[in-house]
Design a binder for these strands. Structure first.
Lengths: 139, 139
DNA sequence: TAAACCACTTGTTATTTGCAAGTAGTTAAA
DNA sequence: TTTAACTACTTGCAAATAACAAGTGGTTTA
């Protein structure tokens, strides 16, 4: 059930129409930083998403052009999910989310090494990660 | 009714526990870019939020330390909402949202001047806007 | 001193989420 | 070659959340 209603032309509203829920961005996080590519891997993430929600969000993300689906060449019953170019473009936004939470959450699990690296060399780490994701996309 | 359940220590999850809905970030947008400070001003935003949702989200944002409430000194029945320091720290994240949507939404209302300015002088515009918001906070 | 303003609250209904169980195609093991 | 396990979902139902409409109780303006 894919439902995307456009509330206004405001760029903030546009993004929230796609990502404005508790789960969608966690799927993007798993694709972006945790090397996850399969339905079953997303299910076993740290936050226990329900199967129907996961299926709905994956369908919505594909419909929005943020992820792409393909069949695993070595395993016809497995489906590979990857971030599209549009999805990879979410990287700077994701990094800023992490930076904000790392600063304001006492119990954050954010890696200190990562935070320091972003502070010192933001452009470098963005290029490094997006390069890796673009390579994955072409596989 | 303020309900904030922590799902994990992941920084992405932490931010989504606060902002993972369709409305909260639009309130932050209004405070950050549209110079809005009153309940009635948020209600008349472009997207028509319901009164109870607005009240709930404002209470939650205050509880989370993202905004601060005060009584208008010239008008005892009016309440002024402002971004706290923690709220102002959301600026880079907000800017990245706008940049992503401006790039990927054909019908975006994002201002071209703003987009160009961010591309050319990200640090400069961040300082400019956060400086203005910090000044407002001290008023 | 009455009407309008302002920031909410309170019901009620509609929609979304969460949980448990089930299904259909694919692969691995006996 | 049959069977059990795996994988990606779907379905049904209960619970939680959001949306809509109306009302409330102080404050200010005329």
């Amino acid at each position: 059930m894919i439902k995307l209603k456009r509330r206004s032309d405001c760029p903030v509203s546009f993004a929230l129409d796609i990502f404005g829920d508790k789960w969608t961005f966690l799927i993007v996080r798993d694709l972006m930083f945790k090397g996850k590519h399969y339905y079953g891997e997303f299910l076993n993430g740290g936050e226990k998403i329900a199967t129907n929600i996961l299926a709905d969000k994956l369908a919505m993300l594909e419909h929005s052009g943020v992820i792409v689906k393909s069949v695993d060449p070595n395993h016809a019953s497995k489906i590979i999910y990857k971030l599209s170019k549009k999805g990879i473009d979410l990287l700077p936004l994701m990094v800023e989310i992490i930076m904000w939470s790392a600063k304001h959450d006492i119990h954050t699990a954010a890696e200190i090494k990562f935070i320091k690296r972003v502070k010192k060399d933001r452009e470098g780490i963005l290029k490094e990660i997006s390069g890796k994701l673009k390579a994955e996309l072409k596989e």
